[in-house]
């Protein structure tokens, strides 16, 4: 197949760039880490991290799809984790998880209402709520952490909510797959998805066709908040404890994952599988830096450099594909 024949494929599938980057990085990491990176245990860990970051990323991708952005998800993740941990030792973990998801959805509703009713840019609104809910999380924990007693870390409902494993993988991974499938169907094969992408592509045109633009955006924010809190729940289930800083800076990773994965920040183009590949790449890079023994203080620097290079590579590929 000639290079020109690949162009339409790259144009149509925004996730091709991140797929190539993922393959290249996996090959490079495997070749340069002397088996410390490419082993079953490490993969399971990377996938667990990908699962929680990925769930948050899926929600952010939907909001980005409408042409808005939600940077409060890191705090929502933390709130979800704290609500779950606080309740899970008192009531059944499944009810605690529902409550955590409801809190996340409420935060999403607040974001969505503020954005759609006031017309204020979502970047500013969600920057505000990022700080508000981080502040609440820190105030609630008062510098300590919430945890589930070891004795209570059992039972099927605890295990399926990130607290256990199935076939060698943390149960969070299965939630991610389930939610990916559901959201992909919603986005590509249901009227809601058609309208969501239309709103992101041209809100004025969608409005002229009778689409309730505000409602679509509001729904995306609610789903995003709920997913971020659910991701926090699963992370809390795995760790069994959380403090007020849980999920800090994850919002940036989620947004980076979306962009790397081929979601257009201006809206209208979403690749959920691409966004997840983006999350996988970020988790893989972190894991690689750990196993090759890069000192933690250099983490962010290296991560940033690799993200910039990956984004540049993806952008170049896309520009090449768009050329006639």
């Amino acid at each position: 197949m000639s290079l020109a024949a690949i162009k339409p494929v790259v144009r149509r599938h925004a996730e091709i760039g991140i797929l190539l980057i993922a393959v290249a990085l996996v090959a490079f990491f495997s070749a340069t880490s002397d088996g410390r990176w490419a082993n079953a245990y490490n993969f399971a860990t990377i996938l667990q991290v990908t699962a929680t970051l990925g769930l948050m990323t899926l929600g952010v991708a939907l909001v980005i799809g409408t042409g808005e952005i939600d940077i409060s998800v890191g705090s929502t993740f933390g709130m979800g984790a704290l609500v779950y941990l606080w309740l899970a030792s008192r009531i059944d973990p499944s009810a605690a998880a529902l409550a955590a998801v409801a809190v996340g959805a409420a935060i999403g509703l607040l974001n969505g209402l503020l954005v759609t009713r006031t017309g204020t840019p979502s970047l500013i609104i969600t920057l505000g709520t990022l700080m508000i809910f981080r502040g609440i999380a820190i105030a609630l924990t008062e510098g300590f952490s919430f945890s589930i007693p070891y004795a209570a870390r059992k039972g099927w409902s605890f295990e399926i909510l990130g607290g256990g494993e199935f076939l060698g993988f943390n149960t969070a991974l299965y939630w991610l797959i389930l939610i990916l499938v559901v959201l992909t169907v919603v986005l590509t094969a249901m009227p809601f998805g058609n309208r969501l992408l239309a709103v992101g592509g041209s809100a004025a045109s969608a409005h002229s066709r009778g689409i309730r633009v505000g409602r679509i955006k509001l729904s995306a924010f609610v789903i995003c908040g709920a997913l971020a809190a659910f991701a926090g729940t699963l992370e809390a289930g795995k760790l069994g404890f959380a403090d007020g800083s849980m999920g800090r800076l994850m919002e940036l990773q989620a947004i980076a994952s979306c962009v790397l994965g081929g979601c257009l920040l201006a809206g209208g183009r979403v690749s959920l599988i691409g966004a997840l590949l983006g999350a996988f790449v970020l988790s893989s890079i972190q894991s690689y830096l750990v196993v090759v023994g890069v000192a933690p203080q250099w983490f962010l620097l290296f991560l940033g450099i690799i993200v910039v290079l990956a984004a540049y590579g993806d952008q170049s590929l896309r520009q090449w594909a768009l050329k006639k």
């Binding site: 058609n194 992408l197 239309a198 592509g201 041209s202 045109s205 409005h207 002229s208 066709r209």
Partner: peptide
């Protein structure tokens, strides 16, 4: 004239 179609769809 100016609205009615979403280019991305």
């Amino acid at each position: 004239q100016s609205v009615g179609l979403c280019d991305n769809l």
